[in-house]
């Protein structure tokens, strides 16, 4: 069996006649923070949803720690979608209780501490919170798990720059040594410093996969600059 945390073999996903992922073959190792980078509509979110088990592949395979996504992989995959998935009637405190009930690897005290740091009112109804605060809360919940694979879809897109820094620090300080963090974002300059590896996606496929240091050395550019060059309109 492969040691890869996330692996795809000839993965293909289409929505009706529109192909979103085409013949993708990747293998992501454990213990890395990996950036999933690319322009809008290149298939980043689809790949993450396939890994989370929210989409069914049209063809090929996607494996999480050697298993097709199921209830077992969900117990060690921590997924942050690009939208609010918590009910508006919940409060941050009840959301912590909910995660605590379902995930054995969830650390309630860490979640409460992060909520206090980021100024999230634990007793406010979610429907009364701003979009940014809801995003912060969801990230807190997701990063309070000791998961083997974190799937973060646009984790810093909706938060202010000051909170971004805290969130990135949170990601770095909270993931375990053998865990992998896959971050999809277009805010490359913000996250470049925390990444070990990156994947550039275009048209449903991978156009470049490298370590951040390796790419900097090879091309003499930052990942942000490289991204602008690769995706120049």
């Amino acid at each position: 069996m492969s040691d890869a945390v996330l692996e795809t073999k000839g993965l293909y996903k289409a929505y009706g006649p529109r192909t979103v992922i085409s013949d993708m073959n990747i293998s992501l190792p454990a213990g890395k923070i990996i950036g999933l980078l690319g322009p809008n509509g290149c298939g980043k979110t689809t790949l993450i949803k396939l890994a989370a088990g929210l989409l069914t592949p049209t063809d090929g395979e996607i494996l999480v720690c050697g298993r097709q996504p199921d209830e077992v992989t969900r117990s060690f995959v921590s997924y942050l979608p690009e939208r609010t998935y918590l009910s508006g009637s919940m409060t941050p405190r009840s959301a912590v209780g909910f995660f605590s009930d379902f995930y054995d690897d969830f650390d309630s005290s860490r979640a409460c501490s992060m909520m206090a740091h980021l100024g999230v009112d634990p007793d406010a109804k979610l429907k009364t919170l701003s979009k940014g605060t809801k995003e912060k809360l969801q990230l807190i919940l997701v990063m309070s798990r000791a998961a083997r694979l974190y799937l973060l879809d646009e984790p810093i897109g909706g938060v202010d720059p000051a909170a971004r820094e805290y969130i990135l620090r949170t990601i770095i300080s909270n993931y375990a040594e053998n865990s992998t963090v896959l971050i999809s974002t277009h805010l490359i300059s913000d996250i470049e410093t925390v990444l070990d590896d990156f994947l550039f996606m275009r048209g449903g496929g991978i156009v470049m996969q490298s370590s951040v240091d390796g790419a900097r050395e090879k091309y003499g550019k930052s990942i942000d600059e490289l991204f602008r060059e690769v995706y120049r309109c």
Partner: peptide
């Protein structure tokens, strides 16, 4: 949107 949470819980279908 709430389905994103429900279907990522470690539960059998």
């Amino acid at each position: 949107d709430e389905g994103y949470l429900t279907f990522t819980l470690p539960l059998k279908t």
